[in-house]
């Protein structure tokens, strides 16, 4: 991890998008680590791999199984599952469930997955005192459409619509209490997809699985009980590897997606003030489940240093690493 006197990020640093950043992370893990490159679990035989995209980010599922046929079939099931959850959580198409909710203000008979994820998001909103809020979407959309330079009055109006407590999540209906509200699940859905794939593969009888669908999730350690080694990228600091035996790992940083040219307005928005997270603050969270790690890393990017310990308590068995140029690296467990 970066030392205390790590240099400030160079001003001319190339502008990575969140996708490129993730792609680079995947590439680093593929090239740098023998545990990922070669079949570590030889007991489970051949390595099967699927590559594609999940929720707009590159995704990769690697599993080891002695039977080539079952491996191929399982990856096909995973692909369908990713597509299915994209239909729920993505905003890319108008007929996806979340787009319908945003357009119509309510969603009747949501799928089990949609209801669980919204409920989990709202619980997390409460546990983080609103630092994590899925109803940030009106502000996000405004900033994205205006390239980070919105009309001030419009921005205030959009911020006024942000309040996770105004979301009603019941078994048969999810709805917004106020006109104009909208939700985004970008801060947590990748984690949820990762968790679902992991559970599904476990139910299908696969061990020794590493999933990267935006966030990492290892189903079990490698066959020799050594952990998977994942590359942590906290630019501008040098990479390091993180041992992940079982559980999930999620990384968030303001530099992931920039909404304004200088990156001072980026995709991590504080629901209370509308301000963006500091550009080069990067948070990695390890937790048993990827959705928790994903949401917690988003929240930790936005909170002040003294709030971190209490925020970390929102997730059991979590471990967080926060780095920022000019500040000491912070590492703690809940």
């Amino acid at each position: 991890m970066p030392s205390r006197d790590s240099p400030a990020p160079p001003a001319h640093a190339a502008m990575p998008t969140r996708r490129r950043f993730l792609a680079a992370l995947g590439a680093a893990s593929a090239l740098g680590m023998p545990g990922w490159q070669l079949p570590p679990a030889d007991r489970d035989g051949l390595r099967h791999e699927w590559r594609g995209t999940a929720l707009g980010a590159p995704a990769r599922i690697t599993l080891h199984h002695f039977d080539r046929i079952r491996g191929v079939a399982a990856l096909e099931v995973c692909r369908a599952e990713i597509d299915r959850l994209e239909n729920e959580f993505s905003l890319y198409r108008a007929d996806f469930a979340l787009s319908r909710l945003n357009r119509e203000g309510e969603l009747l008979r949501p799928s089990l997955d949609m209801r669980r994820l919204v409920e989990q998001s709202l619980r997390f909103g409460a546990a983080t005192g609103g630092r994590f809020d899925i109803t940030i979407q009106p502000l996000w959309r405004l900033l994205a459409e205006s390239a980070g330079t919105p009309d001030r009055r419009a921005a205030e109006a959009a911020l006024g619509l942000v309040d996770y407590r105004q979301v009603e999540a019941a078994v048969g209906r999810i709805a917004f209490a106020r006109e104009g509200m909208a939700a985004t699940l970008n801060g947590i859905a990748q984690g949820y997809v990762t968790d679902r794939i992991a559970d599904l593969l476990q139910d299908l009888g696969f061990a020794h699985v590493l999933i990267n669908a935006g966030e990492f999730r290892a189903a079990t350690s490698q066959a020799d009980d050594s952990p998977w080694r994942i590359a942590l990228r906290h630019p501008p600091f040098p990479d390091r590897t993180y041992p992940l035996a079982t559980g999930a790992l999620a990384t968030s940083g303001g530099h992931g997606t920039r909404l304004s040219a200088d990156g001072q307005i980026n995709h991590l928005l504080d629901p209370a003030t509308g301000a963006s997270a500091p550009l080069w603050r990067t948070v990695t969270v390890a937790a048993p489940r990827a959705s928790d790690a994903d949401a917690l890393s988003t929240a930790l990017c936005l909170c002040a240093a003294d709030e971190r310990p209490s925020l970390l308590q929102a997730v059991a068995d979590a471990c967080a690493i926060v780095t920022e140029p000019g500040a000491a690296a912070w590492e703690a467990r809940s």
Partner: peptide, 18 residues
């Protein structure tokens, strides 16, 4: 009350069926 079974759903390929 809700009209949907809250603990289960059918899934077929890319389709969720409440």
């Amino acid at each position: 009350r809700s009209g949907v079974f809250e603990r289960m759903q059918l899934v077929q390929g890319e389709r969720s069926i409440p």
